[in-house]
């Protein structure tokens, strides 16, 4: 009995391994094709569409990347091909990192209030917040633009950052996690005469940091990859105010002819690299974090 169980487990492991291997390969192949494609000359796509890699050594080219990085200096006669990629990278970091950190502070303070400061209607207010998640964001796109203008942050990076501060999701996620912290700990600290701020900083934050970390990464990815809102806010700002994702989208739009496939793939890959690095570094943390909270974006 035991033995057959064990053997059964082994068999199912092998089956699982094979299926997962297959799925992973299918999931990764398009990304790899895009990566290799960004190093292929455009005629190689015509002549050898069946080839996964550049079909021969002469079809291998750095042209796409060379073009992207050759226009980082402003030349007034070629203003339309001014791609200050390093500025864009810097702006993206400011927007994604700065915005996320501030939101985390705001959201975790709110989550603390919902969980540990029992006030009237706390639950009802919270349910109301969750309900607002069902409202399509498109309703408030134009009004939000008017709002940003009233606040005077139109055409600035601030206009990309602050709308996210009203987000419900992060509060929801962090609150769920704080709920898991034993209340005794908080009560004990209260009896010892600790102020709420102290409890928040010394007890709750250290215990809830993984949830905050996860929400931080979600926020970071969302802000980093955003193109639609960026176009509305900074689309007509000077190029040095653009973010990486938006700038590369503009370059990709300019690649209208099929011949520009190398450049457009190269710009797609460039847009993917920073977020990939973040993912590599934080991969295990994200997955463990999500696994623990059971929350995703």
């Amino acid at each position: 009995m035991q033995r057959s169980l064990k053997r059964g487990k082994k068999v199912s492991k092998v089956v699982a391994f094979v299926i997962l291997l297959l799925v992973s390969v299918i999931f990764l192949l398009p990304l790899l094709w895009g990566l290799f494609g960004s190093f292929r000359s455009h005629d190689d796509f015509y002549l050898h569409p069946e080839s996964f890699f550049p079909s021969n050594i002469s079809a291998f080219t750095f042209d796409g990347y060379a073009e992207l990085f050759s226009k980082t200096e402003y030349v007034s006669s070629e203003a339309n091909e001014y791609y200050p990629i390093w500025n864009w990278l810097f702006n993206s970091v400011i927007v994604a990192f700065g915005g996320t950190v501030i939101y985390l502070i705001i959201a975790s303070l709110a989550a603390y209030a919902f969980v540990f400061l029992d006030f009237k209607y706390a639950n009802k207010i919270f349910y109301f917040l969750i309900c607002t998640m069902t409202i399509p964001g498109i309703i408030s796109t134009t009004p939000q633009l008017i709002n940003m203008n009233l606040l005077g942050v139109y055409k600035t990076l601030l206009g990309l950052i602050i709308p996210s501060f009203g987000g419900v999701y992060g509060v929801f996620l962090i609150k769920q996690f704080f709920t898991g912290i034993p209340k005794d700990l908080i009560e004990n600290a209260r009896i010892d005469g600790a102020s709420n701020l102290k409890i928040f900083l010394k007890v709750v934050l250290p215990l809830g940091k993984s949830a905050i970390f996860v929400e931080g990464l979600f926020g970071f990815m969302g802000a980093w990859n955003d193109v639609q809102w960026a176009q509305l806010i900074i689309g007509n700002a000077p190029r040095t105010t653009w973010t990486l994702a938006y700038g590369l989208k503009v370059i990709s739009d300019q690649c209208e002819s099929y011949e520009a496939i190398t450049l457009s793939l190269a710009s797609a890959i460039i847009a993917m690299i920073p977020i990939f690095i973040v993912y590599l570094v934080a991969q295990s943390k994200i997955i463990e974090g999500v696994a623990n909270t059971g929350i995703k974006r």
Binding site: L145, I146, N149, Y154, K155, Q231, L232, G235, N236, V250, D253
Partner: peptide, 15 residues
């Protein structure tokens, strides 16, 4: 040409 009109609209309104 994809972006021009939206950008112009917003700029004339707000800026």
């Amino acid at each position: 040409r994809y972006d021009l009109e939206t950008l112009l609209q917003n700029t004339i309104q707000f800026d």
